[in-house]
Computed example of a mutant assay.
Amino acid sequence: MERKPLSKITIADITEDCGINRMTFYYHFQDIYDLIDWICQEEGARAIQGRKNYATWQDGFLALCHTIQANRVFVEGVYHSVQREKIENYLYQIVYDLLFDVVCELSDGSLISQEDQQYITNFYKYGFVGVVLEWVRTGMKEPPERLTHQLSRMAHGQLLLAIQNMSEAPALSKEPE
């Protein structure tokens, strides 16, 4: 991606750069987009590894931002291609995994359903990922530490408040009466 846009990269380019044959590539991946998914999942999981609880989620998010920044050419190449949703989906999954564990930890002992835990996690996931996508779109000018600090300030106490609100408010029935 340092030499050409994603749309111009072929399997032959990848196998030649890696010193492997096409069959080896296809043994592991269906196509280039499958490889992109794998790279995103591996890098994201490595970034937040062991940092998915209330005390460490900021460290996990910061590590994720540093990983994105370290892989800037790759991330921007995919983001600015027709495969932009690959980066978005990767971020949604990684941030969901990060936040869901925090929501579960904070809701321990409360009367909140798993469905409500998932709803809270999804709600905040979209906000967090929106901030990261805007950061990528604008060239990652802001340091990851500032981005993480701002998100941490915004979210401070909000997950617990959302859990309390969801456990106190009666759920609407799914069937009309």
Score class of each variant (00 low, 15 high):
152 S>K: 06
126 Y>V: 07
106 L>P: 06
22 R>T: 13
146 R>H: 10
171 A>M: 08
5 P>S: 12
171 A>W: 00
13 D>I: 00
68 I>G: 06
122 N>Q: 15
36 I>A: 06
76 E>Q: 14
171 A>K: 10
161 L>H: 14
77 G>H: 04
5 P>M: 06
164 Q>K: 10
116 D>K: 04
28 H>W: 06
66 H>M: 09
168 E>I: 05
85 E>F: 15
24 T>K: 04
76 E>I: 10
135 W>V: 08
148 T>G: 01
77 G>W: 03
89 N>S: 14
138 T>L: 12
142 E>T: 15
85 E>V: 12
82 V>S: 13
14 I>H: 06
147 L>S: 10
23 M>E: 12
14 I>D: 01
98 L>F: 03
123 F>H: 15
32 I>L: 13
35 L>H: 07
113 S>H: 03
114 Q>P: 13
104 C>D: 14
72 R>I: 14
28 H>E: 13
73 V>A: 12
100 F>N: 13
73 V>C: 08
18 C>S: 09
170 P>H: 08
113 S>Y: 03
103 V>I: 11
137 R>I: 04
59 D>K: 13
73 V>I: 14
163 I>Q: 04
22 R>H: 11
69 Q>G: 03
126 Y>D: 11
138 T>N: 14
108 D>W: 08
50 G>K: 01
67 T>W: 01
39 I>L: 13
101 D>T: 10
148 T>F: 01
89 N>E: 10
142 E>S: 11
23 M>S: 12
37 D>W: 08
132 V>I: 14
150 Q>P: 00
136 V>Q: 05
173 S>W: 03
83 Q>G: 13
169 A>E: 08
157 G>Y: 05
32 I>N: 05
154 M>Q: 09
137 R>F: 04
51 R>I: 00
173 S>R: 11
4 K>T: 08
84 R>M: 07
41 Q>K: 12
104 C>L: 11
77 G>I: 04
8 K>F: 07
124 Y>M: 09
136 V>C: 07
150 Q>V: 15
45 A>N: 12
